[in-house]
Amino acid sequence: MRSSLDELYQEVILDHNRRPRNFRTIAPASHHANGHNPLCGDRLSLYVQVEAGVIADVAFQGSGCAISKASASLMTDAVKGHSIEDAHGLFLRFHRMVTTSADEAIEDMGKLSVLAGVREFPMRVKCASLAWHTLEAALSYTPEISTE
């Protein structure tokens, strides 16, 4: 059986940490927000280009731990090309996946399911959700958010 540590730091996550996707800026972007997790010092700038209600492009910059970086990278891949409503729905499902122990919360999460392992590490849930909270903030025109 894989240990919960191996589950957390599995290859997909390490790969997204090493080579984050969409790790760049978009200028100008229709939506932008900065996310900050003061507990660990993670900082993330998120750029979203919305066209006709659809996320046409999304990118991020910043520094943080492997979990927050991989999560941001995976998120950009997951929401690109989707409508704002779909992205919001995915945020809610992602949040549920990392905060409950229910197995069915992992189903249909696609690649994002690799982050389900953080549920065993309550102190790290905020690292995984920072990018998602920042996306919600950007889409609602909130320029700065901080997960206390």
Partner: peptide, 28 residues
């Protein structure tokens, strides 16, 4: 390797260390 990842991994070996800015952000 980010200190936070270091902290989580060594904790699983029973080793308790602190990671972060240690309430001294200007020092960082």
């Amino acid at each position: 390797i980010h200190p936070h990842d270091v902290g989580t991994i060594v904790d699983r070996e029973g080793v308790a260390i602190r990671t972060g800015h240690h309430c001294a952000q200007p020092v960082m």
